[in-house]
Simulated scan of single mutants.
Amino acid sequence: MDHRHLGRSGLKVSEITYGNWLTHGSQVEDEAATACVRAALDAGITTFDTADVYANTRAETVLGEALKGERRESLEIFTKVYFPTGPKGPNDTGLSRKHVTESVEGSLRRLQTDHVDLYQAHRYDVATPLEETMGAFADLVRAGKVLYVGVSEWTADQIRAGHELARQMGFQLVSNQPQYSALWRVIEGEVVPTCRELGVSQVVWSPVAQGVLTGKYVPGQDLPAGSRATDEKGGKTMIARWMGDDVLARVQELRPVAADLGLSMPQLAVAWVLQNDNVAAAIIGASRPEQVHDNAAASGVRIPADALARIDEVLGDAVVTDPGKTLEGMPTERLA
């Protein structure tokens, strides 16, 4: 397993990172979740990503239990704050000092640790002054409860503003966690150039496009039983954008590319995002240990230029590149 520096910091993370969005505490039973975490550790993965909102805090609890007994210094544990948890009261969401300060305590308790290696603002909060949010993060860093600070799905301008405030307050903004895959490239036009300039890395989620780039969905065939496209708890909605026959047919045309490189389809997808030098880690999820081992084998793979060009040719206009897509679903004005 190769490791990469996170931003301009000294922290190294495994370039394949294990995440438990839509799995632990929801789609996957606790025993299976623990087996997947054990498989990740066996594969050399040292970095684990979660969030308080995943399964309404259950995902953090499951991960904490699965990692119990491991040498804490050998792990990098990431979590996030922003979305509502618990009873969803008026202060149970956002990036106010109150919510950030209280949320980290809950995350530390569930993860069974006295600090998290990376604490991430899960979205930008237009309802809270950025100075308030970054001040709360600065205090957590000084208290030793948070070692590094990152964001998730922020625009280039938001990252630049947050980075400058962090610098003024004596800590670093080291990472952004966006969606990124061969099909979803919206960060390439603005976010990646800005982050390269500022020394901020990408820790990307959904490198296999919610499973579409594994090739498991074939035009004209029934959906695989138990797949994300059949999950009524949220997975089906997330994957819907890719389920048209045109996209699925194009993905099937990637099979010869993967075969020529001696890779499985998931390995090709994960390795593709790791070709971007601004990407520190690709987050993988799994419901079975064998999926972890297959994805982890993408570490260290270098895809030659002709194969990258072939991928671009095959996917063509199915690729989404509009930088404005980062703002989809994000409030654009103060709500109160």
Score class of each variant (00 low, 15 high):
S14V: 01
S14K: 01
S14C: 01
E15Q: 12
E15V: 08
E15S: 09
E15M: 06
I16S: 02
I16F: 02
T17A: 14
T17F: 03
T17V: 10
Y18K: 06
Y18H: 11
Y18M: 11
G19N: 01
G19P: 05
G19C: 04
G19T: 02
G19E: 01
N20I: 09
N20A: 08
N20V: 11
N20C: 13
N20R: 02
N20M: 04
W21P: 04
W21V: 04
W21D: 02
L22P: 09
L22C: 08
L22Q: 13
L22N: 07
T23S: 10
T23Q: 04
T23L: 01
T23G: 04
T23P: 03
H24R: 08
G25V: 00
G25F: 00
G25T: 00
S26G: 05
S26R: 13
Q27E: 12
Q27M: 11
V28H: 05
V28I: 11
E29C: 09
D30L: 06
D30N: 13
D30C: 08
E31K: 15
E31F: 10
A32F: 06
A32E: 13
A32Q: 13
A32C: 07
A33C: 00
A33G: 04
A33S: 10
T34V: 13
T34W: 12
T34K: 14
T34D: 13
T34L: 09
A35Q: 13
A35P: 10
C36M: 10
C36R: 08
C36H: 11
C36P: 08
C36K: 10
C36V: 08
V37W: 05
R38S: 14
R38N: 15
A39G: 00
A39V: 00
A39Q: 00
A39I: 00
A40I: 02
A40G: 06
A40H: 01
L41V: 14
L41E: 09
L41I: 15
D42M: 09
D42A: 15
A43G: 12
G44A: 03
G44E: 05
I45Q: 10
I45T: 11
T46L: 01
T46K: 03
T47R: 07
T47V: 11
F48H: 05
D49I: 03
D49T: 05
T50D: 00
T50H: 03
A51P: 06
A51K: 03
A51R: 05
A51D: 05
D52S: 11
D52H: 07
D52V: 07
D52T: 07
D52Y: 04
V53T: 15
V53G: 12
V53R: 13
V53C: 15
V53D: 14
V53H: 14
V53P: 11
